[in-house]
Design a binder for these strands. Structure first.
Lengths: 152, 152
DNA sequence: TATTTTTTGTTGCAATTACAGCAAATTAGT
DNA sequence: ACTAATTTGCTGTAATTGCAACAAAAAATA
């Protein structure tokens, strides 16, 4: 069975490092761009749902969002029919940065797919979707304390 | 052009979280297992090469390795023909943990590939290798300060 | 309706991460 | 051989990360 974990980790770390460097010019550090894009795509989303979307820790997401709020990219708005939830929206400043992030992501994606034909790229995307579903499901199990089925 | 960056990020984060949880029983935190496995595979490797292998920051690797040394999993040995390099080797304790890590990785890999046929899995691995090469090369360029070719 | 469970926001805290920067050793270039 | 550039190990420091824990609100259940 071929090994795929390593290259996925390597790719993810390299992309992460690239983003950290490139997005500095917009005063975005670390994974902030991830949250900003998702809030753009899901206006009014709450922090916990955002964390689930991205498969990151609740408090990590909460603090990243709070920093975006402090920087003026995102605003929190109390839900109208709910006294607990705080809905997230991009501010005008956040909306202005968004297209730059998207351009960067599109370019990174292009670079990543350079050596693949269009149909190979489509295949790859489909494979990754399947892998993603399985791995996140496994993660949910492990998080709940499920013991993985093999001897230690 | 299909989007592959997101699923790769999601998969990597989920795998990372799984590893963090599973490896606690061996007193390994965060990405420590990555370093331990690579030192097993490259006995005598120095920290900077290890960092390059994994595409992580020099100091991140150095501190992770130092923690492995403090915990007794790894030892540093000054090179015989060289007064600067410190070669890394697993201790007996490190060698004992290694098979457990490998079993965990193999299982994670199996789970990830559950929905793919063997030939699809082989294809996926080949695609990812190509992507990895491109992305890490791009990262090297960005690190050197190369401006990416599109308007901001 | 009353009670229990889950969800959501938040903070404390210890650890990891990563940028700067330094000194010493090595290597490359003249 | 000499100088400049690179490599390697290391530390300071600020930031991010993530586990634990809490309170309040909401949802689920009896």
């Amino acid at each position: 069975m071929p090994e795929i974990l390593r290259s996925i980790g390597t790719i993810a770390r390299a992309l992460d490092s690239i983003s950290n460097i490139e997005f500095k010019q917009y005063d975005l550090t670390k994974g902030q761009y991830l949250y900003l894009v998702r809030i753009y795509e899901h206006p009014g989303i709450i922090t916990d749902h955002l964390a689930n979307l991205l498969t990151v820790d609740r408090t990590t997401a909460a603090r990243a969002v709070q920093k975006l709020v402090n920087q003026g990219f995102v605003r929190k708005q109390s839900a109208t029919n709910n006294r607990k939830n705080k809905e997230l929206y991009l501010t005008e400043q956040g909306a202005q940065v968004y297209p730059h992030i998207q351009r960067e992501n599109t370019y990174s994606n292009q670079v990543a797919l350079t050596d693949l034909t269009p149909s190979e790229a489509t295949e790859l995307a489909a494979f990754l979707a399947k892998v993603s579903n399985r791995v996140t499901a496994d993660f949910e199990q492990v998080k709940k304390g499920q013991t993985r089925p093999y001897p230690h």
